[in-house]
């Protein structure tokens, strides 16, 4: 009997020792990981920073055209009283739908009333893809960070880093993951995604040609207008109108890209005009100015053109008020 009690004591002691050692080790390694995550910033990837900044009064929403091409810093020269935040992502992640609308709701201050909202639209953002299950519940973005990140204003955002950051954690502090060949890819604190490719006109032309070719192929994956996505575009505008003034914008793209989009949805501008009349908001279509800007790859404005366009858009907003 005495032996039994003794063995139980030994078991208990060794188990306790084991548990305490493990907890200590987990705490030290967990703390180290947390410190590394704290280094995550605008170099981490194209989206992370947008989930770390505070809730906002005014937003830019849309695809990567807006993410790269609309520079809040340039706009503030014309609209100094409206610090606007770029909450645009990409064609893949942010077609209009429930996940994006829910994320926008999270990013906007609940009491925001006099904000300015730029809703960037293009045919890709309201189209249906082939083989896509799309209904009031199922959106392909559900499984992306838009559906998965519930806290969009916390730093470090562990939810994002652990579930949606696709790079290696070592790149968080080496900052080399997305920055190679002397390129600068950086998301500023105002949400603008700076893409400084630093390349020659010849290389730029090559990139434009290759992007146009790839979009010609991508275009075959799209099936034209999705009523559900169009409805969510309207719901997004409707929600933002409650918080301020909304402007629907179609940004300039390379003429060859525009041709692909005309093929994809010939009546896109007509549809947008109908939306603007229905919801009583301005629709600024800049596709007649495609030759006045430079593009990094055919559908994203380069830094100088982006700055120029941002000022132009801000002036148009001021003029319309």
């Amino acid at each position: 009997m005495a032996l039994k009690s003794r063995s139980l004591f030994i078991f208990s002691f060794s188990m306790k020792r084991f548990i305490w050692h493990i907890i200590g080790f987990i705490l030290i390694t967990g703390l180290s990981c947390y410190i590394i995550f704290m280094q995550a910033d605008g170099y981490t990837d194209a989206f992370y920073v947008k989930f770390t900044t505070p809730k906002q009064n005014s937003l830019i929403v849309g695809s990567s055209r807006a993410a790269q091409g609309l520079q809040p810093n340039s706009m503030s020269r014309v609209l100094p009283n409206y610090p606007i935040y770029n909450y645009a992502f990409s064609r893949i992640h942010t077609p209009y739908g429930k996940p994006y609308l829910e994320s926008i709701k999270l990013k906007l201050k609940e009491d925001s009333k006099k904000g300015i909202f730029i809703v960037e639209v293009n045919p890709w953002s309201i189209c249906k893809q082939k083989n896509e299950v799309l209904d009031s519940v199922n959106f392909r973005e559900n499984n992306s960070f838009l559906g998965g990140v519930k806290n969009v204003s916390v730093k470090p955002n562990l939810e994002y880093l652990m579930n949606f950051y696709e790079g290696k954690n070592v790149d968080i502090f080496t900052k080399k993951g997305t920055n190679y060949h002397k390129e600068i890819l950086f998301v500023h604190d105002d949400g603008w995604y700076e893409v400084n490719l630093n390349d020659s006109p010849k290389k730029r032309d090559q990139r434009i040609n290759s992007t146009i070719t790839s979009y010609s192929k991508i275009r075959t994956d799209y099936q034209g207008l999705s009523d559900i996505r169009l409805d969510y575009l309207k719901q997004t505008i409707d929600f933002l109108q409650y918080h301020g003034k909304v402007f629907m914008v179609r940004m300039p793209v390379h003429s060859n890209m525009l041709a692909i989009e005309k093929e994809l949805m010939p009546d896109f501008d007509q549809k947008m005009l109908e939306v603007s009349m229905e919801l009583e908001l301005p629709y600024f279509n800049f596709t007649h100015m495609v030759d006045q800007f430079q593009y990094t790859d055919g559908h994203h404005l380069d830094i100088d053109s982006g700055s120029k366009f941002s000022v132009l858009l801000a002036q148009k907003i001021v003029a319309s008020q």
Binding site: F25, I28, T29, C33, K168, V170
Partner: peptide, 16 residues
């Protein structure tokens, strides 16, 4: 323990 810690950090840093 330092070596084990180093291996864990390698897993964390270089994990895909």
């Amino acid at each position: 323990l330092l070596i084990y810690y180093f291996i864990i950090m390698l897993i964390f840093l270089y994990g895909v």
